[in-house]
């Protein structure tokens, strides 16, 4: 009979599974899953908010940049270097494509097809985040004629590739596309 089994299993032997264990497990796991799922909003609220994400693409007019000249702009509140390479610089960068590098990349891989003279990189040293010199007139361009980070002495070449110093990677090339011949949309 049902009532008999109920009595036996509720008041019966100490070991073994009791009917009451079920309600303990069910109650505690419901509370546990509910409590744990609360962590999601509490953690997620620290991630970039919608207005920050909305500002994470930027348009750059490159029409006015002369060969050999760079401009500094900002992308995601970080400096962005846009540089128009001279034919000599393109040749120098291509010549080095095959040499041994810490983070091997060819110039073609770092530029868009048909726009080999436009090099767009983040102005953030991949070592510890300082802004490298070399984008503005008269700044130290380092031993390889590109960028030089004064914080810990990383030398980047004309294509923004790491050639000497502590930085582990080339200057990052963000995602971008040409919306016209003179306008680039970054992000």
């Amino acid at each position: 009979m049902a009532s008999d089994t109920a009595v036996i299993s509720e008041t019966g032997s100490e070991e073994g599974v009791r009917r009451r264990d079920w309600i303990h497990i069910a109650a505690l796991s419901t509370a546990g899953v509910g409590g744990a799922s609360l962590l999601f909003p509490l953690i997620s609220q620290m991630a970039p908010s919608a207005d920050v994400l909305a500002a994470s693409s930027t348009e750059v007019d490159i029409g006015a940049i002369a060969a050999g000249q760079s401009i500094k702009t900002t992308f995601r509140k970080q400096p962005l270097f846009v540089k128009r390479l001279t034919p000599e610089e393109i040749a120098a960068a291509k010549k080095d494509d095959g040499t041994s590098m810490r983070d091997p990349q060819t110039l073609a891989e770092r530029t868009k097809e048909g726009h080999e003279d436009i090099l767009i990189t983040m102005g953030v040293c991949t070592h510890l985040g300082c802004v490298p010199l070399g984008a503005a007139e008269g700044e130290n361009k380092g031993e390889f004629g590109g960028y030089f980070c004064p914080c810990h002495g990383s030398h980047y070449d004309v294509a923004g590739r790491i050639r000497k110093g502590p930085a582990p990677l080339n200057l990052m090339v963000p995602e971008y596309s040409f919306t016209s011949d003179t306008v680039v949309r970054v992000g």
Binding site: P41, S44, S49, A50, V52
Partner: peptide
């Protein structure tokens, strides 16, 4: 208003 519209889960908090 920023909390209500932009911050992740800001409205709920």
């Amino acid at each position: 208003e920023h909390i209500m519209r932009n911050v992740n889960w800001g409205w709920a908090l």
